[in-house]
Amino acid sequence: MSNSKIKKQMQTSNEIVRFENIEKTYYLGKLEVPVLKGIDLVFKKGEFIGIMGASGSGKSTLLNVLGLLDVPTAGKYFLLNQEVENFSDNHMAELRNSSIGFIFQSFNLFPHLTVEQNIEVPMVYSEIPKKKRRKRARELADRVGLGHRLTHRPTELSGGECQRIAIARALSNNPSFLLADEPTGNLDEKTSHEILDILHDLHQNKETTIVMITHDPEVECIFDRIFHLRDGIIDKRTEAGGEKC
């Protein structure tokens, strides 16, 4: 197949991400630590993807590669139909800024910034003027139900509220896809549901591809597809609407 044909196919199939035999090996001195051992996968626009697997199976590593925070040691990664290998550090930063939203287990909010300032951070790096930033931050805060806490600082908020702010921040530049590494890992069941509801709502408009790592088998039903990782390879792929749902 020629290159242009592949591209055409990608476009028609709404491909956001394609991994071809991705490997990631860490080197600790002379010791090789293979973490990802050949991953093939394709994510399409608007999909809600779950990644599950035992601790140490390489989930976070996979997500970091997806999010351009880390580069694979072998294999091909196409993001929005472009091969990542040749991207410069600056270009990757720009893509992280404009096309990728990160949600962390421990929220990673800036403790000294207010809620609205926290939401604004990615827009600061994309040089959006202050007025416009502020307006967008308020909209997003409203959207995650925290429009009344704009001038509070993260330390004054509950864990669930913090994660909602982090989601608002991740959405601020309208990313093509959202990466969440155990976003409910630090939250109790009730708050977890609130967060999942927000992600679920987001999924409804089918605009954003969401990739979420979780340990919780209970939530399987909200995903379109689930990838099960074991020892650095995809052990099992589950389509949505499994027997439990």
């Binding site: 550090d89 990160f102 951070v121 921040r169």
Partner: peptide, 11 residues
């Protein structure tokens, strides 16, 4: 975190 949110090395 800043890097993940899009800060370049230069920033």
């Amino acid at each position: 975190t800043r890097r993940a949110l899009g800060a370049k090395k230069n920033d």
